[in-house]
Amino acid sequence: METFAAVFDVIYQLFDNIGFLILAASGLVIIFGMMGVINMAHGELMMIGAYITAFSYHAGIPAPIAIIFAGIGAGLVGMILERLVIRHFYKQLLSSLVVTWGLSLLLSQGFLIIFGPSILNVPTPFGNFPIGEQTFGIYRLVLFAVAIAMVASVWAIFTYTKFGTRARATMEDPDMANALGVNTGNIYALTFGLGCAMGGIAGGMFALTATISPFFGINYTPLAFITVVTGGSANAISGLISSALSLAGIQTGINNLVNVYIGYVAMIGAAFVILLILPKGISEYIERRKIRVRKVTNK
């Protein structure tokens, strides 16, 4: 029982850390990984999601529905921003960085002026369960489940729907897609909106465990970027999962072996080393392996 509890403890932490990274990065994987826009305002869209969730919840709406509202709200804001600003910056990675940094200042400072420095958060639901001597929160597992569900639905949307096919075609070659009758403008707006909606849902999920302030999102952005870049864009989904898995794995391991500080440093250090060895991210390596395997089996 003792060893079981200890093993469960580590697995629980691993799930917790993976869920956290995937949630924080899930929207960005579309916006940065597929569309090639460095969106420094992604954390602010999460913040908007958190605000919508908290306001809806305190207005009497159940938390799950409030979180869906957050996704819709953040998605709409994202689409508006895309049409007004972002669309001028495709294929200009670094100008997009500056312009979205400006947007992030506008959003966070605007919220500060309108809603003040903080609002009441939403209580964490579901309670806990005991394993051995210790007790574990259920909500952290829900976070993990939602993270996986979000990745799965992104994959499903881009693989099986007509929109997904068109979106992939547009990202691959916008002119060709346009010539074939795809309204690329709409596709860009919808894809960006989808990424923002995922950010909004993530923000809503975190609103149940964190304090909510206009600067809520700022600290998620760098970690989300590191996760997405480590994953690479050869295959955004497998990249996200593999990089979250490896970064969270290293963090959890070192956390338990040494301490949290070294664990945190090790995680960022690992991202550094992975990028040095696999400059195009983990997913590119996976794709290469797949092709090689396919070639071998074809022979």
Partner: peptide, 20 residues
Amino acid sequence: GEIALLVLGAILVFAMLLAP
């Protein structure tokens, strides 16, 4: 006061829109 960062954000957005 607090308006400073708001204005700075607006400057960045408009500057990049006008002259990428």
